[in-house]
Amino acid sequence: MGEAIPLVDYLVLGNDPHLEANECVACGARFFDRRNACASCGAINSDGSGFKRVELPATGELTAFTIVSFAAPGIEVPFVAGVVKCGGTSVRANIVNVSPDPEHVATGMQVSLTTFGIGEDSEGTEAIGFGYEPADEELRITDDAIEKAEANS
């Protein structure tokens, strides 16, 4: 079995997969990308000490979503894209393991982080993506349902 690599560097893999943000030491603003300085307070990050890595909670609230019917090749549609507020920090993510329709997805729903493989490269390394699934297990699509849907597609 090959190694695993996260889809993005702010996804930390291991026994307890989680997201990490870059937090401005001066003002507390949080970002997910590599930083030159802070877009909130202007603090400069020339030697890397201007920001610290902080772990985000694995659960949050869905504050906005859409159900996308058209996407680039390789992306299955429809899928649910949204914004999840995790302990005061907003995260962009897909909402997964849920039926992609407005009867099963609603703003305000509680969701929790999950990870999954998105494919292997030529050396057998698997890239791992992340999404959020309904915290309420009854709203999650079961593995059986997913297999059935895939068989039909």
């Binding site: 690599i5 993005v8 996308v68 058209f70 680039a72 390789g74 962009r92 993510a93 998105i118």
Partner: peptide, 25 residues
């Protein structure tokens, strides 16, 4: 973001109808 693959569609959506849909929602 140190991405190993396109994030559009894997981590939310970048298509304009989807971005503005979320803004309304």
């Amino acid at each position: 973001f140190g991405a190993v693959a396109s994030t559009d569609g894997r981590i939310g959506t970048e298509i304009m109808p989807g971005v503005f849909a979320q803004i309304g929602m």
